[in-house]
Amino acid sequence: MLYEKKEAWSVLLRLYHWAFALSIVCLVVTGLYVHEPWTSTQLEAVRTFPMAYMRYLHFLAGFVFTAALMVRLYLLIFGNRQEKFWNAAPITPSNIVNFFKTILFYLYIGKKDHRLGHNALAFTIYVVVFLLAVCQIITGFYLLYPESVFWQGWGLKLFGTQQQARFLHHIFMWCFMLFAMIHVYLVVWNENVAPEGMISSIFSGDKFVEKS
């Protein structure tokens, strides 16, 4: 079988992906520590600030996360064909068909409906994750700047008091962990059942498509 190399992801999208992924890992690790500062009784002493440094890393990663999301938002509108919103959102007839075909494919029933970019099912989940990320950013900045009129305004309107926002911020984190688990599993699964270089594409930008 002959394959053809085609560029799927621009440099900017790949940078976005890794900034987003690594910031999430950092946010989860430091966030769980802030939630449950388990070392504080062992390490707390003069001139050591385990909690302060965990929070510091959390805030830094939060800014990286925000910056990454900004880039993705830009690419949804101005990116290459695969990165654009209309390319894979299940709102056009062919994308709706792809959405259901992908479900069947994942259930080992149908055949893969090949796409150079995202399949419609994955993209739908990405949109949900995108919206969750927006929620994390708003709750996060609301918690970081409790005195800021701007963040307090949005935070109160959308998520309630500091404590409610903190609770939701924590719950949303579990959604990200769940997403990361499924995401990695499906990428590896795809790599096995439909060889197109999906994993390497997020490093190199290129996928391999069957020559017709």
């Binding site: 302060a52 510091y56 805030f59 830094l60 939060g62 800014f63 990286v64 925000t66 910056a67 970081l144």
Partner: peptide, 13 residues
């Protein structure tokens, strides 16, 4: 932590 993260955050953004 907040001041430092904020100035680094501005650079990141």
């Amino acid at each position: 932590v907040v001041s430092s993260a904020e100035s680094a955050g501005k650079t990141i953004l």
